[in-house]
Design a protein around this nucleic acid. Structure first.
Lengths: 192, 192
DNA sequence: ACTCTAGCGGAGGCACGCCTCCGCTTCAAC
DNA sequence: GTTGAAGCGGAGGCGTGCCTCCGCTAGAGT
């Protein structure tokens, strides 16, 4: 595990083209891709994404030479948001900060379907994203552990997998999903 | 919610053809389908399934007119096993019986990828399978609740969704998966 | 305003999956 | 052993997705 060789923060910005029309298309593609990946997982049809973006398939391929480039970019963008959120929670009460972040994690990821795939992908960028996310969220768990609020026999990766798994499942409604999630988190909490 | 109009137990048997070669092909198709669904989810290629079974694509379609027929049959077969397991656990200590069954549930389902899809599918057969499973497993939770070992503010469906979600996620190894699962189940347990 | 080049779109070739159809094969009943 | 029908398999037509290539368009710099 080495530190990422480039800041996640800049992936989206650095690839965005300069010309006005090109930049507009780039944004439309990212938005369309986020939507399509959310619906169909990372195997969503690229032609469909181009269609949704109102752009020719050629334009998609010029901006993102492979499916992976596109997926990585969307994903990195979301991870970046999560990292910021973690920083903003630094001054809250430990257990509440942790659960608040996990809530964002549950909702914010590219797509429920794709989270699981990305969490285990080996590519450099995905690895870098995981590093950033662990670096940002890990301390939230450690803080809760030091405060005696979270059990010590699990690590942050365990926790993310648990939350990702539960949120990836279909529920009757949000109420049921939240109930199940909070029950599972009760298992993480040190019994009072 | 009405009772299923036919016994789950007989779906596989009733569809199995009589002629010797035909029955052999039928079995090979089921085995190949179970394997393929496990790898690729319920969208696995039917031509690939026929290939794995060493059978022409026409034979697949004769036995299973639609993808759904095939998927339902494999699924019903597994549910059937789970129902039997639940009955065998009836004489064990409540909490242990429940977790033992959930363990089987986690491992036995057609495929981790497909469980989630099937758990929310609306077709008659899937609904019947769910009914059977709830009827078989539900009492295990109720027994644990009455013994004061499981919390009362959740139902069996919540529990299955939780376990299905967690087991559907990729983990580094079985040890990690079991650890996470048991942490989540600690949330279900009434604190001693 | 002019230019020139970055950027555009989509036609088209390839691969693959779906499903039907029908001439051939093999079982099993007699 | 004969025979009829149940069962077989895969060719082929259709649709869809992948990706490349190239003639056209429109933004940016002068």
């Amino acid at each position: 595990m080495t530190a990422p060789s480039f800041p996640i923060t800049e992936i989206v910005a650095s690839r965005r083209p300069h010309r006005k029309d090109a930049a507009r298309n780039y944004d439309a593609l990212l938005a369309a891709a986020r939507e399509a990946f959310a619906e169909h997982g990372s195997e969503a049809s690229l032609e469909d994404i181009a269609r949704r973006a109102g752009v020719g398939i050629g334009t998609l391929y010029r901006n993102f030479p492979t499916r992976r480039h596109l997926f990585e970019t969307v994903y990195a963008d979301d991870v970046n948001t999560l990292v910021q959120v973690a920083q903003e929670l630094a001054d809250q009460e430990p257990w509440q900060a942790l659960t608040a972040w996990l809530d964002r994690f549950a909702g914010y990821m590219v797509t429920k379907r794709a989270v699981r795939e990305a969490l285990n992908d080996e590519s450099e960028i995905f690895a870098a994203c995981r590093e950033s996310m662990y670096a940002a969220g890990g301390p939230l768990l450690e803080r809760a552990q030091e405060a005696g609020q979270a059990r010590r026999d699990m690590d942050f990766v365990d926790l993310l997998r648990m939350v990702a798994g539960i949120t990836a499942t279909a529920f009757d409604d949000d109420v049921q999903r939240d109930r199940v999630l909070s029950i599972a988190l009760d298992g993480v909490r040190v019994s009072r």
